[in-house]
Each structure stands twice: as C-alpha cells, then as structure tokens.
C-alpha cells in the first residue's frame, strides 16, 4: 500500500519526546489521558482556542511537518474530533437559552478542525480530508492515502488518527456498559473477568510515500469488516493471511486490540488460533485505552518496536519461537461491530 518514513505519537504513555517502552503509566478512574508536551511553533492564542484533540493532533503533526518535507495533503481519521467543543457549545445553547452565544466553540466543534487547522498553520493548500467513521475512521484514512499514492505516485502525505475522551461520550458509553463498572487499573486490564474496558485517547501521525529507501516500514495490506459474528471474523482473518502472506512464511507478531472486555474473549481467542507457535501475541490497549482510532496508536507501535529486541513484558501475551518483529499483523475492533486487519513489514 505505502511506505512509512516518519512517525509521531502523543498518547497516555511516554511516546512523544523520549520514548520509554518499559514504563507503563497507570490509568486514573478507568481512564488513560494523553500526556501533552509543551507545544512549540504555535501562538499561545491559537493554542488556547483549540480543544485537546486539536492540540494533540497539531502537536504530533507539526513535529513531522517541521522535520520532514511539506506533505502534499493531510488525511485525518477521527471519531470524536471537536466533540468536547460541541459539548461546550451545546451547554451554552441550553444554559443561555439560545441567546448571546459566542461562536468560538461552534467553529472548533466540527470534526474537520484538526486537519484544517493544520492546513492553516502550515499554509497547506493540498488535499485535505477528515474521515469520521468511528472505529474505522483511521482505516478509511489509510485507504484514502493508499489511493492518493496510486493516483500521485511521487507525492508524500501526512496520515493520522486522533481522538480525545469527550465527557458526554464517556458518560453515555459508561452507562451502556462499554467501560468497566469496577475500578480497574490498566496494569490489570486483562486479568479481570468482567464486561467493559477502560477509556483512552491519543494522536498518531505518519509521513508516507511510495519510496522504499530509508523507510521504517511498509503497510502492505488492510481490510475492514462490519460484523458481530466471530466465526466470520476469524474466517476473514484466515483468508486475509492466505492472500497476503506468502506460503512458507509466517507472521512474527500478532498485535491485538484485546481490551479486557470479557465478552470479547472468544472473539480474540478465535483470531489467535489462526497462528502457530512461531508467532508472538501481544496487546496494546492497556497502553492507550479504548478509543475509536486506537488502531493508529497500534500502527505507531508496530513501526516503533525494534525488530530484534524482545517486547516489553507488559505487552506480551504469548512469546513466539521466532523472536523477531519483522512482520506485524494488527487486529483492532471497536464495540464488536467494526474490525480491521493491517499488515506491516518492518525494515528498521
């Protein structure tokens, strides 16, 4: 599909300035909040008007744009981008009875605020889009980017996934049973036998093009599914492997979006059963929490993990016999109905 050259990530863990994989920050009240760096290169006034999703999106993207070449377009996936600003404006409407409202939050409330503020900050007049299809928002941004590179083979694009924990969404999803009722630390996320997970947020950005030289990794295939049928999903996983992994070769690392929700245990187990002893199985949602574009965090992780070093203990579910992380298959799912497989081959 395309080659990944630079990556950047703001998450609840130490992933931005000085990456520390062995350190695991602990969740508070069943939430993992993104750790924001001191932002540089953006006026304080502009920063103050931005919601958190915009700030972390801008922070991760600006690093890549400042370090690398100006991208030919900006492709963002976000389910909740602008949601907290929407809530702020909604409260104003109700609490001030639709009178004398300041438009600031409304302007920042549109999901396209992240991608478009980036275009303004960097004077980027190229292709600019925001995909918002919940648990497949980032995957659609990936498909879009892959198509752009088929259409414009010499170009470089900025691809990203961003979401924040929006207060109303958290309350409503908690009520609906998507988050654990009992206090659960991310350190024990996979040990509980109860329904629900913990909430998270983050931003991950990638500079991508068609050039193999100097690339960190290649995203070789992606597929998306909409289903609650675990047999169908594990069947599609096997078909995906058959189509995309040459016979005689195997996946080194199966990185899953297992999130501690006991109701998904069978689904995850049936997907894991597609792999033999050589494949290492690892997890990432105890690091970033559950959010619709968490697959962008997983892709960042797949790019970052060194090929020849063991994984941090906290990620490991089952150590495979291969001891390499060269080929990585990411499986993510959101609320049982949206699923994706992304296949990554690493060079560095």
């Amino acid at each position: 599909m395309f080659f990944i050259h630079q990556t950047s990530c703001i998450s609840p863990q130490e992933t931005f300035s000085n990456v520390k994989m062995d350190l695991l920050h602990v969740s508070v009240h069943n939430k993992l909040l993104a750790i924001e760096p001191a932002y540089t290169g953006v006026a304080v006034g502009v920063l103050r008007r931005m919601g958190k999703a915009s700030r972390i999106g801008m922070g991760t993207a600006m690093r890549l744009i400042q370090e690398g070449a100006a991208p030919d377009g900006l492709i963002i996936g976000t389910a909740n981008g602008g949601m907290e600003e929407s809530i702020r404006f909604l409260k104003q409407i109700i609490e001030y009875h639709e009178d004398m409202l300041a438009p600031g939050s409304f302007v920042q409330s549109t999901a396209n605020a992240i991608a478009t503020q980036l275009s303004m900050l960097t004077k980027n007049k190229g292709y600019n889009i925001t995909h918002v299809h919940k648990g497949l928002a980032f995957e659609n941004a990936v498909i879009d980017t892959a198509m752009l590179l088929m259409e414009n083979p010499g170009n470089t694009y900025l691809l990203g996934g961003v979401d924040e924990i929006a207060s109303y969404n958290y309350i409503i999803e908690h009520t609906a049973g998507w988050y654990k009722k009992e206090y659960t630390s991310n350190q024990d996320l996979y040990k509980r036998n109860s329904a629900g997970t913990i909430a998270g947020e983050g931003a991950a950005m990638f500079l991508v093009n068609n050039k193999k030289e100097q690339a960190i990794a290649e995203l070789t295939a992606l597929t998306t599914l909409h289903s609650t049928d675990k047999e169908l999903i594990s069947g599609q996983l096997k078909a995906f492997l058959k189509k995309n992994v040459p016979s005689g070769e195997s996946i080194n690392l199966f990185l899953t979006g297992e999130n501690g929700d006991a109701r998904d245990a069978d689904l995850v187990a049936s997907c894991e059963s597609a792999f033999g002893n050589e494949t290492t199985v690892a997890r990432f949602k105890h690091m970033c929490g559950e959010y619709p574009t968490a697959s962008a965090f997983a892709l960042w992780l797949a790019c970052y993990l060194p090929i020849d070093q063991p994984l941090p203990e906290h990620m490991l579910k089952k150590q495979g016999t291969t001891n390499k992380n060269r080929t990585v298959l990411i499986y993510n799912y959101h609320k049982n109905v949206q699923h994706s497989f992304m296949l990554v081959t690493k060079f560095k």
């Binding site: 389910a79 549109t110 999901a111 396209n112 991608a115 600019n128 889009i129 925001t130 995909h131 918002v132 299809h133 919940k134 497949l136 928002a137 659609n140 498909i143 998306t224 599914l225 909409h226 109905v337």
Partner: peptide, 22 residues
C-alpha cells in the same frame, strides 16, 4: 457515523463503508 452504520446494517453491506465530515 451512526447514520451510515445503521444503513450498513439495514442493507447488510460488506464492502468498504465510510463517513466523511469536511
């Protein structure tokens, strides 16, 4: 996304489904 997720289910679509907001 809820709009198109409803339509996906209604028509039992299995191809690429997306929601765009610009």
């Amino acid at each position: 996304a809820s709009v198109n997720m409803y339509l996906q289910k209604y028509y039992r679509l299995s191809g690429i489904v997306n929601t765009i907001n610009t």
